[in-house]
Amino acid sequence: MGALHGGHLSLIEKAKEKATRIVASIFVNPTQFAPGEDFDTYPRDEGADLAKLASAGCDLAYLPTVGEMYPEGSVTNVRVEELSDLLDGIYRPHFFYGVSTVVARLFLHVQPDVAVFGEKDYQQLQIIRRMVQDLGFPVEIIGASTARDADGLAQSSRNLYLKPEERRNAGAMQAALHRASVRLATGESPSIALNEARDLLARSGFEKIDYVSLVDPATLKDLPDTPLATGTVARLLGAAWMGRTRLIDNISVTR
């Protein structure tokens, strides 16, 4: 959605491993925003974005208008049930229906062979994978590792909203998830590890914690409150507010 940073550009590099021509779309999608959210103020810098894409070796930038993406009178939407109603879907119930609809339309417009999405938005990645599987899109979906700043904060366009003090404390999100992952990997029960993570977030200045959850990586459903069995791979996800900025992150956990 623009306001490109190193995380976005890392997707370009990942795509180069699989394709000879790279297309990046930039489109601030109105259907992902509920009334009162930051659609009007979302960071936009088209000129800088295009320069960054060119320097990264992107061959084509696709910048459709709202009218091109949603023709007048359009009433067709794509809904990925269940996966869209968990985690972020509880707090932003409109969001993933906007994501799946716009990604389906972008796939039809561009017709890529491969599409790369960042693992930072892990729930989004899983929803797109399921949509492609269910609808038969001939597109290979690749997840790219989360790009992080030196203190561990996942790179995001919304990080620009953080005030200086908030930015200094925001790295606690990754630190809390990492500590919980270590505890889980050594046999701690999920409830204890997750509560410790929530406490660390609260002590670090996160004023509202939407969730810290340990889930099945494919279904995104909560795992039972029992120590992970040896060999189990799970996903740990968190969402919390630092001031007026909502931050999300996730990491893999293996026992």
Results as ranks from 00 to 15, higher is better:
G2W: 14
G7Y: 15
L11V: 11
I12H: 00
I12Q: 00
E17K: 02
E17N: 04
A19T: 00
T20Y: 00
T20F: 02
R21Y: 05
I22S: 00
A24F: 09
A24L: 09
P30Q: 14
P30H: 07
P35Q: 07
P35C: 12
G36K: 08
F39T: 15
F39W: 14
T41M: 02
T41C: 05
R44K: 10
E46S: 10
G47V: 13
A48K: 15
D49G: 08
S55W: 02
S55C: 06
A56C: 07
A56S: 03
C58I: 01
Y62P: 12
L63I: 11
P64F: 13
P64M: 14
E68G: 13
M69W: 12
P71K: 11
N77D: 11
D88R: 04
G89T: 11
R92E: 15
R92I: 13
F95K: 14
F96L: 12
F96T: 08
Y97K: 11
G98A: 09
G98T: 09
V99H: 02
S100Y: 03
S100P: 03
T101E: 08
R105L: 09
L106Y: 04
F107D: 02
F107S: 04
F107R: 12
H109D: 12
P112K: 07
D113M: 02
V114N: 00
V114A: 09
G118C: 12
K120C: 05
K120S: 11
Y122N: 13
Y122H: 05
Q124D: 06
Q124L: 03
I127R: 06
I128H: 00
V132E: 01
D134C: 09
E140S: 09
A144Q: 10
S145K: 15
T146M: 13
D149P: 01
D149V: 06
A150G: 00
G152N: 04
L153I: 12
S157P: 12
Y161D: 08
P164K: 06
R167L: 13
A170E: 00
M173K: 04
A175R: 15
A176S: 11
S181R: 07
T186M: 11
G187H: 09
P190A: 07
P190T: 09
S191L: 10
S191P: 03
I192T: 12
A193Y: 05
N195Q: 14
E196C: 13
A202M: 04
R203Q: 15
F206M: 01
K208W: 00
Y211D: 03
V215S: 05
D216M: 06
T219E: 07
T219M: 07
T219K: 13
L220V: 14
D222V: 08
T226F: 05
T226Q: 11
L228A: 08
L228G: 07
A229C: 06
V233W: 07
V233M: 07
G238V: 06
G238Q: 07
A240F: 02
A240Y: 00
W241N: 12
W241C: 02
M242G: 01
T245D: 04
T245Q: 02
L247M: 02
I248C: 07
D249M: 06
N250C: 15
I251Y: 00
I251D: 04
R255W: 01
